[in-house]
């Protein structure tokens, strides 16, 4: 009996100390982590909508995979397009995208966190792929043999699922914006 009490108490001490350490670390790091997250999102919005000086959030309705929308405001105070964050269903899980639009034209696309296969789908995060979207509009399609016209995107070699997922997500944003904003 005494043995059980001793073992339980010692384990309890270890658990309590571990819990206190976790609690203390969480309290100390909570705000910095939230700030980092905000800064990262802000940086992604700036990257896809370079003409915007600041952003204000826009409420969304029935937006599917689109999570957030911000209206870009240029240095002179005029509106200059929108920045959307949208989630695509990739090959290895969710792919976070930020898409910038101005009057129905894509001003930029950036890939955030993803878990695509390194060396294959992960190439979506390289400019060779996401750079293709800039300046395009309408409904985009993926071409495995390389883009032949303005509404086509060259697929990443051996990563058709990822290429399609990203393109479909961008199409969703284009369709949503066309229906609701313009």
């Amino acid at each position: 009996m005494r043995e059980i009490v001793k073992v339980t108490l010692r384990l309890l001490v270890i658990m309590v100390i571990a819990g206190l350490c976790l609690g203390a670390t969480y309290t100390v790091t909570k705000d910095p982590i939230a700030n980092q997250e905000l800064a990262r999102k802000e940086a992604a919005r700036k990257a896809v909508l370079p003409s915007a000086e600041s952003f204000e959030e826009v409420a969304l309705e029935n937006s599917g995979d689109i999570a957030e929308c911000y209206r870009g405001i240029a240095a002179d105070g005029s509106a200059c397009g929108y920045a959307f964050s949208v989630t695509a269903k990739g090959f290895g899980g969710d792919v976070a995208l930020t898409v910038g639009l101005d009057q129905g034209k894509i001003t930029g696309v950036r890939i955030g966190t993803h878990s695509e296969t390194p060396g294959l789908g992960a190439k979506a995060a390289q400019e060779d792929f996401y750079g293709q979207f800039t300046g395009k509009s309408g409904a985009l399609t993926v071409n495995k043999n390389g883009a032949t016209n303005d509404s086509e995107i060259s697929a990443i070699t051996a990563a058709t699922v990822t290429s399609n997922a990203v393109t479909n997500a961008v199409n969703q944003v284009l369709a949503y914006a066309a229906e609701n904003f313009d």
């Binding site: 001793k6 073992v7 010692r10 384990l11 270890i14 658990m15 571990a18 350490c21 976790l22 670390t25 969480y26 100390v28 790091t29 910095p32 982590i33 980092q36």
Partner: peptide, 27 residues
């Protein structure tokens, strides 16, 4: 650490360490 409960004790220590490292790195 009593030898009878060393496994849960070690796992708690390791998991705590990993979580602390992750939080600090993120921040």
């Amino acid at each position: 650490v009593p030898s009878k409960v060393r496994i849960p004790a070690y796992i708690v220590v390791i998991a705590t360490f990993v979580t602390v490292v992750q939080l600090l790195m993120n921040a």
